[in-house]
Design a protein around this nucleic acid. Structure first.
Lengths: 339, 339
DNA sequence: TTGAAAGCGATACCAG
DNA sequence: CTGGTATCGCTTTCAA
């Protein structure tokens, strides 16, 4: 920067102002400085800028890279940030090392704002973190004071899925979900979906059939397969998200069954769900919109336009595809042969 | 840091040494300082550290978030970095804004090392960039001097796919690939696959059938569908990568055809390829290993263990699944009805 | 082994 | 409108 200042015959301060196009620079000076910048191929060091001002980076913490729904969120955020002077820095969690440590890593790097997705970070911890920098949490329905949230209406989405299956005549509807910490009140997406499932089955006088699985794809598959082979009375599965649902489809296929025998409905509407070979009925929660909205909320805070919390909620929509079909008693109709 | 120094009754320099566990600190001092760090919950600011030393961040540039193969690379890199003091910062390209600008953004943020995936960045530019910081390029077979490369043997992989189809009796084998800049010699994965396809069809006396598509999923689908409906003599498609292959499967399904009529082989072995409903034959290039290897090469340079370029090449393997079947003349056998 | 002081490259305040 | 200067938080000599 000193070089640029010398080349243009001005002071460092002036160069700084031109870069930030701050108030108080004459046109003559601006042109000279910009010419010098061009000529020397000067690029400001973000690290140095970050010490006094901002880093022009916004951090996006995600617990898991393999999840297509999270990918949609990332895409929405990245697209919304395109053309701005900010760069999106995505920091993935790795196995157990997820959530708070990753968020701290990003905060240590002086990002100007932070988007968090990990459901297991506690609200109290996030409130503290949000005292230091703007934070948006995606997914959890927190009643936060210092940070914003972007959620979808998991209760409504679950109702859409279950009402759809009931309308098709299903009564033995299982719910496959992730193992999770108990929480009161439920605020994570999967806890809310589970709760809503429990309420709806109870209201309808149906027996709840709940199966829990871990994160590893192999475990999900094993649990799905065990569930499908253990109880032939089940005619439909509502899966906590599409990746689980697709594991159910895999288990069905491997057992020589199909969605004619067992209907499957997922949640998220990941891209592959719409593929004709998969054709998964699901609830869309518009991941790209969520990512984009998170950036917008963050920018409002970064620019100082807003200091009070906002809780933005998306209305999910049902996508009916081939994996949900009218109920048949499976024990009667199934053929046990591959089609 | 001043606070910590005061609390421990030592100098800033001493605290710094403890943090970096540098040479020349007594045990007594270390314990006192560590206690103070604990007590005050002190966390060093990376931005300040970056000004003098390193940022403990390594940058990963990817052109596109929606590509499952790139996701595998990211996962491999993230996993390999787990437990180290480095944080992976993934910077996605957005639409046109990809490649060089994103790499510059990362370099401006003083990352300690950089992994690049964009094929369109020129070798000359990368050589210059690699003068400033360690760089590993994934995918392109450059004969680089200042940066390392991680590639898979695209020629061998293409041979695996095409030999497989030939063995199944196919002679009308189309190749669906991405539109790309001409380059001499070919160094990008898709250019090499195309070249190998051209050589093999020529050697076998077969007519080359080459179809180009853009990046947008809709365009890929349209091209695939047009190809499938235009020329019924085609009995097999070798797609440049799995996502293209899956679009071909979609087009086939929508046309009332299946892989009994047209065999499809992809490249990458993305997770969904192994799903029984998709069952895509493909060439695995072990994306996770590539990502992990890139981190390893980078770390060797960051630690100063190595300064000469390495070009690491992975041996691809064929994964035979249901989408490749013995050739039938499609015009004779097809039924044009949905099954 | 420890402490003091000089930067790193920008920003921001305050005179001129 | 412009230039000088203190400053951010850390690393890194260099003496003691």
């Amino acid at each position: 920067m000193d070089d640029v200042a010398k080349a243009a015959g001005v002071s460092k301060g002036a160069v700084s102002k031109v870069i930030r196009n701050a108030y108080g620079v004459s046109d003559a000076m601006r042109t000279r400085v910009e010419a010098a910048i061009q000529e020397l191929g000067y690029r400001p060091r973000i690290a140095a800028r970050a010490m006094r001002g901002s880093s022009f980076s916004i951090g996006l913490e995600i617990p898991n890279l393999g999840n297509d729904f999270l990918t949609q969120i990332m895409q929405g955020a990245a697209a919304r940030l395109a053309g701005s002077s900010y760069q999106l820095m995505i920091a993935p969690g790795i196995g157990e090392l997820s959530g708070a440590p990753v968020l701290e890593n990003l905060a240590d790097r002086q990002v100007d704002g932070l988007i968090a997705i990990s459901p297991e970070v506690t609200p109290a911890w996030l409130e503290t973190l949000a005292l230091e920098l703007p934070v948006v949490l995606i997914g959890r329905h927190d009643d936060s004071v210092n940070y914003d949230t972007v959620t979808n209406d998991d209760v409504a989405g679950t109702r859409l899925a279950l009402d759809h299956l009931r309308t098709l005549g299903h009564e033995r509807i299982a719910h496959l979900t992730m193992r999770m910490q108990p929480e009161t009140p439920p605020r994570t997406p999967h806890a809310l979906r589970l709760l809503t499932y429990e309420q709806m089955t109870s209201d309808a006088g149906l027996e709840p059939i709940i199966e829990y699985c871990g994160d590893a794809p192999d475990d999900v598959y094993a649990v799905a397969r065990e569930l499908m082979s253990r109880d032939p009375s089940i005619t439909a599965v509502f899966a906590g998200h599409d990746t689980l649902a697709i594991s159910v489809l895999r288990a069905l296929a491997d057992l020589g069954l199909s969605t004619r025998h067992v209907s499957v409905v997922g949640y998220d509407d990941i891209p592959v769900a719409g593929h004709p070979l998969v054709s998964l009925s699901t609830v869309s929660q518009f991941g790209e919109t969520m990512g984009a909205k998170a950036i917008e909320l963050l920018m409002e805070r970064i620019s100082g336009k807003r200091t009070t919390a906002r809780h933005y909620q998306i209305h999910p929509e049902l996508r009916v595809r081939g994996s949900s079909q009218a109920a048949h008693s499976r024990s009667a109709s199934e053929s046990r042969t591959r089609s």
